[in-house]
Amino acid sequence: MSRRFFSLAALAVVIVGGVGVSSVAAQTVSEPAGRLQVGVGVGWIGGAALGEQPANLRTASGGPYRLFESETDLASSGSFEARVGILVSRRYGVEGRVAISKPELHSVITSDAEATGSFTAAETVDHYVFDGGVVVRLPELAGMGLTPFASAGAGYVRQLHEEQALVETGHLFYVGGGFTRPLLSRSQGLIRAMSVRADLRLNLFYLELDEGSRQQGSVSGSLVLTF
């Protein structure tokens, strides 16, 4: 599932980015530049296959004897996120984000030498992401009230196993894109604009206990207030 999501996210970025280069600007951005933006939202982060690992014993000749097999994955889960950013120009913005999710880690055991059937062992992981990056708005591609954007950045990951029995940290990189749709825009008052935003991302996580990177796609929707 995560791989399919990855392809989707990559495709979206390519389309948004590629077309953006050759298109002509056609529509203005509702959110004014130079102002603080705050958003909150919910989302979904895709799962990740963490690999298969046999429980091998040694035979007299040194070959393996399979006691059982295991396959471990991190399940997809809902997430909550909060974002703070600023549009430094009509096209470019910078932002920081906190995202919290509680995915389940599953290990499925099969082919046990002494027990029939399969068994699943699981734990819930508290997953915290603190990231920041650049947003490139693409007003030239706007249509139907939607303004597309592309984004990329990096961040810090903190993963708590079993109610903080183990803290695992790491970092991530992401690329993505999406669109915003203005709901309100005014020239006075504390809140100058309000919009909804949809994000699609590919996240590459590098965590202490993982070998290599873990690819996970994510989608989210948020309400953004511009002050």
Binding site: L105, S107, I109, D112, E114, A115, F119, T120, A121, A122, E123, H161, E162, A165, L166
Partner: peptide, 16 residues
């Protein structure tokens, strides 16, 4: 033969 239904975390420098 039984597999426990929870993954049990060994904490670094501690006891589960």
């Amino acid at each position: 033969v039984t597999f426990h239904d929870r993954l049990i975390v060994a904490p670094r420098g501690g006891t589960s």
